[in-house]
Amino acid sequence: MPQFFTNKRLIILLGSIIILVALIGFSLRDRANITWPEKFVKDVTGFGQNIVSKPAGAVEQFFDDIRRLRNTYEENEKLRTHLDELAQLESDVTRLKKDNAELRKVLEKEESLADYEPVQATVIARNPDRWYELITIDQGESSGIEPDMAVITASGLVGKVKSTSKFTSTVQLLSAHDPQNRVSAIIQADAAIYGLIEGYDEEKKMLKMTKIPSDSNVAKGQTVTTSGLGGVFPKGLVIGKVTELVPDEFGLTQTALVEPAASFYDLEHVMVSKRAMTKVLPEEDRQQVVIEEEAL
């Protein structure tokens, strides 16, 4: 009889290793969104997570408020100096907005890559094993969130939606180590310089912006924003500031180290940006437009 049991154990072990490998292979596949059983489990777990983490978040908020109360005076002084500038800035912005709308009307081009509709969301969980830089937010498909949408905080871009279920979505932060985590970006110099935000330097805590043409003049301190060319991200979301420039290994392009504007730590409230303008269609639905050169 003992012989039989060891055999049975061996079969169970081998069987589960096969299932393990199959499941890991399945989850690493390049897929657009998760399958419906996963969505269901996520919604159920997310519901419990909501119940648990909302009160916990409220308690934490309370202690934060008390801590903040201590340096209110200094903060107030600082804000007062900003306030004077703000009035001027505000009137400028309204004037420019109006100008912009009018000029767009003249051009008959009312939509812009920069328009987006923000969806407010609260972070309900962060991956406790902290390997993948994933956070879970309490808004999902029911509020119109789709995979690959940009996720921002008040200070800048933090990541993109990785997968969605009905009432929750998972957000991958820009600091995640994932070769598929790429964002098309512009450095705002005199002429816009295009590049890709690709990868994160964990030691320096900087984002890497690659594929910058080697002849472009990039200076330290220039602002990096999204370009809106990636397909789903709106244009003009702040990513960070250039701090260092290094030529890449072949000397054909440059890589800039970008100090992120938003903190990736201790996120509580984020916004998901739904881009207003049409998205890039999937490859099979795309229509090819051939521009013929006019014969001279």
Partner: peptide, 17 residues
């Protein structure tokens, strides 16, 4: 483990096994 994989990591099977 199964719930952990699905909800937090997205790498199915790891904690479950």
């Amino acid at each position: 483990g199964f719930l952990f994989d699905m909800f937090y990591t997205g790498l199915l099977g790891a904690y479950m096994f």
